[in-house]
Amino acid sequence: MAKAARAAQAWRTYRDVTRPGSPGLGARIRALPRMIGAAMRGRYPGLGKGRLALLGLGVLYIVSPVDVVPDFLALIGVADDFGVFLWLTGSLLGESGRYVEWERERIRAVPS
């Protein structure tokens, strides 16, 4: 992902998290385990198993000592990890916000 695209995605994520009425950062982070569990059980339609696997691969890439571009190549080696980190963070925060809104809609739909 190009530097400009990473910066644009980071900006979109920031705007989404700070939008009035949108779930806040804390709510999104707390929703991550629920979202992942619901997606794995097939209960949350917004996150398919393929996309969940791709996010898992992103986590593995960040924590893995093996990189496409080795870290000893100064800034270039760290830039690919940072790009994956930005993509992963933006994807998880964006999807967890949609998940929180999906949960809210389900709660509203349940008759009292």
Rank of each mutant, 00 (worst) to 15 (best):
Arg34Lys: 08
Leu88Lys: 11
Ile62Asn: 03
Met40Phe: 06
Leu57Phe: 06
Arg34Gln: 05
Leu52Ser: 00
Asp16Ala: 03
Ile76Tyr: 14
Val63Cys: 07
Ala2Tyr: 05
Leu25Tyr: 06
Gly42Ser: 09
Ala2Leu: 12
Lys49Leu: 13
Gln9Arg: 03
Glu101Pro: 04
Asp71Cys: 08
Gly26Thr: 01
Ala27Ile: 07
Arg106Val: 01
Arg12Ala: 15
Ser96Glu: 03
Ala27Met: 13
Lys49Arg: 13
Leu52Phe: 11
Arg104Val: 03
Leu32Ser: 04
Phe82Met: 15
Leu75Asn: 15
Arg41Asn: 04
Leu92Lys: 02
Leu93Asn: 06
Lys49Asn: 04
Glu105Thr: 04
Leu88Asn: 11
Gly83Pro: 03
Gly24Thr: 07
Leu55Val: 02
Leu60Thr: 01
Asp81Gly: 02
Leu47Gln: 01
Arg28Ser: 07
Leu55Lys: 02
Val59Ala: 04
Thr13Asn: 01
Ala53Ser: 00
Arg19Trp: 11
Leu88Glu: 07
Leu57Asp: 04
Pro45His: 01
Leu54Gly: 02
Leu55Cys: 07
Trp87Phe: 14
Arg12Asp: 10
Phe85Asn: 05
Val66Tyr: 12
Gly77Trp: 15
Phe72Ser: 09
Gly77Met: 14
Arg19Ala: 11
Ala10Gln: 11
Phe82Gln: 12
Ala38Gln: 01
